[in-house]
């Protein structure tokens, strides 16, 4: 095993990490404003994977179109969930505990709705790139891996641009510091929450489609979305750069653990979660908030 082997694994890890990043920014965005872990996000990702599947097979759309439909579909779903499930709680200023429970309920609903209607059998995406590879020296990178890295990088860069450079991004950042004060300054809180759910949902759709292309579509991909949630905690819940860095690190580490002993990869991820929570619950880049009890 030479350097190439490790480089190859590193690329696989970045691939996986990029996909985690697309998922985990959704968790982080919601946490930064609303202070709860939106477990329904996993369901949105799963539905995204199915939308992509049917866009490619039943509708026979070209790949690029399917991608857009997929992002649009899950973005819409995320916004609908916010309207129907979280909005009534928000109006009542319910404690964040209720939000988590509702999120769990929504995730159970989505997962089993798909099981009941489409069925639990896993489905394969049609082949889009017939195992074509790009060769760089001795390294062989599959076109699908390359696409994964490019899609994740571009969408994350666009997201970071929106957050850092635009007026809407400024409003989102203001809300994450202090929602009450920002609404008093004339920021429309409902609109901000609509936008973060939309952005998280669209990225979730992309992630779902990438996942489906590489692996398989099934209703219980919760194991993967849970890992992306771990990545968000690892990077620091509520911090966007944290979520991205955490996801990439987790992806690379997971691949290396898997290449060493494949049955330990899931255990490693959860062990890491526990260690992070013990040593530094605010994660790599999370802000350490003073607890107001």
């Amino acid at each position: 095993m030479g350097v190439e082997y490790y480089l190859q694994q590193l690329i696989n890890g970045i691939c996986l990490g990029g996909m985690y990043a697309l998922m985990s920014v959704g968790y982080s965005l919601v946490y930064s404003i609303m202070n709860f872990s939106n477990f329904a996000h996993g369901g949105v990702i799963m539905v995204g994977a199915y939308v992509g599947f049917y866009a490619l097979t039943s509708l026979g759309l070209p790949f690029g179109m399917a991608f857009i439909v997929c992002g649009f579909g899950s973005g819409l779903l995320a916004v609908i969930i916010e309207r129907l499930v979280y909005n009534p709680l928000r109006r009542r200023h319910a404690p964040s505990l209720y939000f988590i429970i509702s999120a769990m309920g929504a995730s159970i609903f989505l997962e089993n709705f798909v099981v009941a209607t489409i069925g639990p059998t896993p489905r394969n995406y049609p082949t889009i790139f017939a195992n074509s590879v790009v060769k760089i020296g001795n390294l062989a990178i599959g076109l699908d891996s390359l696409l994964m890295i490019v899609v994740s990088a571009v969408s994350l860069l666009i997201l970071m641009f929106i957050i850092q450079k635009t007026k809407i991004g400024l409003a989102i950042r203001a809300c994450s510091y202090n929602e009450k004060a920002s609404t008093l300054m004339g920021i429309n809180g409902d609109l901000i929450i609509f936008i973060i759910f939309l952005m998280g949902g669209v990225l979730a759709g992309f992630a779902g489609m990438l996942y489906g292309m590489r692996y398989i579509v099934k209703p219980t991909i919760g194991a993967v979305t849970n890992k992306s949630f771990v990545a968000a905690v690892f990077g620091g819940l509520g911090s966007l750069p944290g979520a991205i860095v955490g996801s990439l690190l987790l992806g690379v580490m997971e691949i290396f653990v898997a290449s060493w002993k494949s049955n330990l990869r899931d255990l490693f991820v959860y062990a890491l979660l526990i260690i992070v929570l013990i040593v530094r619950p605010s994660g790599l880049m999370g802000k350490v908030t003073e607890d107001k009890a």
């Binding site: 929504a106 609903f109 997962e111 089993n112 099981v115 009941a116």
Partner: peptide, 21 residues
């Protein structure tokens, strides 16, 4: 109703949280 059982579970949780937490 088989598979729909857990669908109603999920729905029930959401409704309970909204109507009677």
């Amino acid at each position: 109703i088989g598979d729909w059982r857990l669908v109603f579970y999920g729905l029930a949780v959401i409704i309970i949280m909204i109507v009677r937490p």
